[in-house]
Nucleic acid binder design. Structure first.
Lengths: 201, 201
DNA sequence: CTAGTAAGTAATTTAATACTTACAAGCGCC
DNA sequence: GGCGCTTGTAAGTATTAAATTACTTACTAG
């Protein structure tokens, strides 16, 4: 079939990653087989192993894709904000928007959480989250500096609550399957979060 | 061996559930096989099917065990509190304490989140979380009534943030493998959460 | 003491899964 | 236009899982 010509490894890798993320939106990532991915791509199962050595390599590449694209969105949100407080709001909504645009992404991350500590993929996730929390802490500190939020707010706790608020919303949407509702509820939760930082609505 | 005499189905079911929770503390629940459980119990794999018809039945029983025991702890925490605000604090710490005492429990719940919506086990989790949020909303409303928290706080959002805060802490502890740290951080996060409700520290 | 039932074992079945291999065919390059 | 590398296929392998089966052993009631 001419629908499916030969392609470069680079483009196939991207396609495999995209397919994995897409399929993860509906099914448990752990249960997605190489056959599933291949079928969704219109290619035979063995072909995948031309582009990734093992399935674990696919999982790692997917996690890296998520990191790259989420961080891009967060940075963009931050840069289009005029101050640190606006940046926090924009990052919050950008993260929720990312989860809505790619519902498979959080499922993949949650799946990797389950893995034993030694797993390289999990270590990558660990690193990603740590960096994220650091960025948040910095932005929070900047907001304190600019007197936009309470001076006595504990930055690490505030960063943890920021992430938790989003994760809670994502978990709820995973249960209901309704990402629309998640985005709506995000507004209310964000407002409450900001109140914790001493921001009046 | 006399260590392992014959037992009733009831006690074996409890043992299977306990073993599943215990093993989930270290490994991904999805990867725990019936052979793993049987080995940990000192029994043959086939024996499990004398007590549960399928593996899914085991998973359902485990989720129900978690529900029952977590709700027991939460209710106890609530009842030993003198007012609605103290109840919220006590429930928060009780939930975190439960996650510390049974690290496998959140992993099992997160694992079920991944399943398709039609799954009976996931539906059970959905129901559990919904009831939990309702309980929280009621307690929050009572706290408003008693003028212990801001009158204009949005109860559904506050319930969502409460759960998210805990889930965020749990996720972090799943990454670090450190439940001790989770409990310490919980104090700071709880304080921040209460600030969102207008409670001065 | 004997018959029925519940709980256990050991071995087997069936169905997937990740990964491999032998071979074919397109593409760029000299 | 042939050469070699890459991407693809089709078929195969080894392994693993849940569930089943045939048989055994312990307990209990009449």
């Amino acid at each position: 079939m001419s629908i499916n010509p030969r392609q470069t490894t680079e483009s196939r890798q991207a396609e495999i990653i995209a397919t994995m993320v897409r399929l993860s939106a509906e099914r448990s990532p752990a249960e997605i087989t190489t056959t599933d991915i291949a079928k969704a791509m219109g290619v035979t199962q063995g072909a995948l192993f031309r582009h990734f050595a093992t399935k674990e390599a696919i999982r790692l590449a997917v996690v890296e894709w998520i990191d790259e694209h989420l961080m891009f969105e967060l940075l963009a949100a931050k840069e289009r904000s005029t101050d640190a407080l606006a940046a926090l709001k924009a990052m919050f909504m950008a993260h929720v928007g990312f989860a809505k645009a790619h519902p498979g992404a959080p499922r993949l991350i949650f799946g990797e959480l389950q893995q034993p500590n030694a797993s390289p993929v999990k270590q990558r996730v660990q690193q990603i989250m740590q960096r994220y929390r650091q960025t948040l802490s910095q932005t929070l500190a900047a907001a304190i500096e600019a007197k936009l939020i309470r001076a006595d707010a504990d930055c690490p706790s505030a960063a943890a609550l920021f992430l938790g608020a989003i994760q809670g919303l994502v978990i709820q949407s995973m249960l209901s399957g309704n990402t629309e509702q998640m985005e709506q509820q995000a507004v209310g939760v964000l407002e409450l979060y900001l109140a914790a930082l001493g921001v009046k609505s």
